[in-house]
């Protein structure tokens, strides 16, 4: 089965068709998606700014992470599910949409950045979590994460403005 076959199959699913044909279902799902994204980006930004040593400098990194990450992950799952539902309603069109592709690329990059950071510098966080300025690896991870997630928001917004019909 080719990719375009798979996408066509997806958007033909009853749930996807229901979303595409309903007046209010897509907007309602989109609102959930937007609220979830604001909480994901906002909570990640708090941690990133701490990793950069720009704000909450008096607070240890692990304590802030413990407070924010559960919410980040919960809202990310919400954003993922709502995003998938919207994507399904017009899978072929969205897949070909350039801002959508860029958004997915940036999400992947943000995930890789986070994974690399966790496997490397974050392992020894107990040693440097109160150090100011934070070590260079933390600052790079935080700065990169912030830029990538801002990019996700911009490209996400652009999806609706490109190839409207």
């Amino acid at each position: 089965m080719s990719l375009s076959d798979a996408l066509s199959w997806l958007e033909a699913r009853p749930f996807a068709v229901a979303i595409a044909e309903s007046d209010w279902l897509f907007p309602a799902i989109e609102v959930v998606h937007v609220v979830a994204i604001t909480l994901v980006v906002g909570s990640i930004a708090m941690l990133d700014l701490r990793l950069l040593g720009v704000s909450r400098r008096g607070q240890g990194v692990t304590e802030l992470a413990d407070n924010t990450l559960p919410w980040t992950w919960t809202c990310f799952c919400l954003a993922l599910v709502s995003g998938f539902l919207m994507f399904s309603s017009a899978a072929v069109r969205y897949f070909g949409n350039t801002p959508f592709r860029m958004k997915m690329l940036l999400l992947l990059a943000a995930g890789i950045n986070m994974a690399v950071f966790h496997i490397t510098a974050y392992r020894g966080v107990a040693r440097w979590e109160h150090q100011l300025p934070p070590p260079i690896a933390a600052r790079i991870a935080g700065g990169l994460s912030l830029l990538l997630w801002i990019g996700v928001v911009f490209f996400g917004r652009w999806i609706g403005f490109v190839d409207r019909y």
Partner: peptide, 21 residues
């Protein structure tokens, strides 16, 4: 408009997460 809307969304992210926390 899309640029300004995106900045608007980012500012919302700051408000929502601050109020939430």
């Amino acid at each position: 408009i899309p640029m300004v809307q995106s900045v608007h969304i980012l500012a919302i992210a700051i408000v929502m997460s601050s109020i939430g926390m």
